[in-house]
Amino acid sequence: MKVSKTYPLKLNVNGEWKKTEVTPRETLLHVLRERLGHTELKEGCGKGDCGACAVLLNGKPVNACLTLALQADGKNVVTLKGIGTPDKPHPLQESFVKKGAIQCGFCSAGMIISAKGLLDENPKPSREEIRKAISGNLCRCTGYKKIVEAIEEAGQNIKKSVGRSQ
């Protein structure tokens, strides 16, 4: 069996630089999950049909399964765990929980990433803009209603907290 060459890879994941060796075929999803322990990303389809593996790549939400790891070399990756933690939850994480936007939870990591990508650019999106922004993220449990509500509420909460800090 032919062994693929490996290449050095340097990634900034959630603010921390990580180094590893990868083969050209390996996707960003594979490297994050299997080599760097970021199992919060999920593989639902492996080819960009479901959005469960979404991450922010230099600030933009993308499918990690549709990005080669080497294409992310030197770039910033933010996963769900980089958005907030139990000590310091992000408003999206709070609103997803409180609004009942999480059922099985398998789409949540990607869903929250897409929502973060949206709110970073547009903190007060309309419902239509929210629906469009998450239209690459499938959810089989919720019917999307509570997810849309959660994103809307998070946007409002972010605005409020920004207002307070000013």
């Binding site: 959005g51 979404a54 939400p61 499918n63 549709l66 990005t67 998450i134 239209s135 690459g136």
Partner: peptide, 9 residues
């Protein structure tokens, strides 16, 4: 085209 995640790539 496709979806927002795909369009970003």
């Amino acid at each position: 085209l496709g979806n927002p995640l795909v369009r970003n790539r």
